[in-house]
Design a protein around this nucleic acid. Structure first.
Length: 114
DNA sequence: CTGATGACTATAG
DNA sequence: CCTATAGCCATCA
């Protein structure tokens, strides 16, 4: 169905470990969607209310929360990230330190064996 | 159908 | 740091 891309995105976001963040473009690429970064935002917006998907671990390419400043969702995202140990400096996250590296997961945990 | 919008990004100046 | 431009594409008016 037309929600294939959305499901892929949700699965990819679900793989982001606590304390790490990924960018929209990164999620798109990891999901095999190329440059459709906007689709990622669209998919996250469509998340059901009680979803387990860690949507808060997705930020824009500048390491900032891309939700409307001051919105409940933006505050929730920031709170959750800070609870996980992600640091904000001047409203930004240092992607060099907190960016999710799927490759590193494979190196440490193995490609798919779990 | 057209045109604007948006939880985006890369590049150029 | 900023703005402008171009690419991307589902969704809405």
């Amino acid at each position: 169905m037309a929600n294939d891309a959305r499901d892929k995105i949700w699965r990819t976001v679900g793989r982001i470990p606590p304390g790490a963040v990924a960018t929209y473009g990164q999620v798109a690429k990891e999901s095999g969607l190329g440059r459709r970064a906007r689709m990622v935002g669209r998919a996250l917006r469509a998340l059901p209310k009680g979803s387990d998907v860690p949507w808060h671990r997705v930020v824009n390419a500048r390491g900032e929360i891309s939700l409307p400043a001051g919105s409940d969702s933006a505050r929730e995202q920031r709170n959750r990230l800070q609870e996980e140990g992600v640091e904000f400096r001047g409203g930004r996250i240092d992607l060099a330190r907190f960016r999710w590296r799927p490759n590193l997961d494979e190196l440490l945990w193995g490609p798919a064996d779990g």
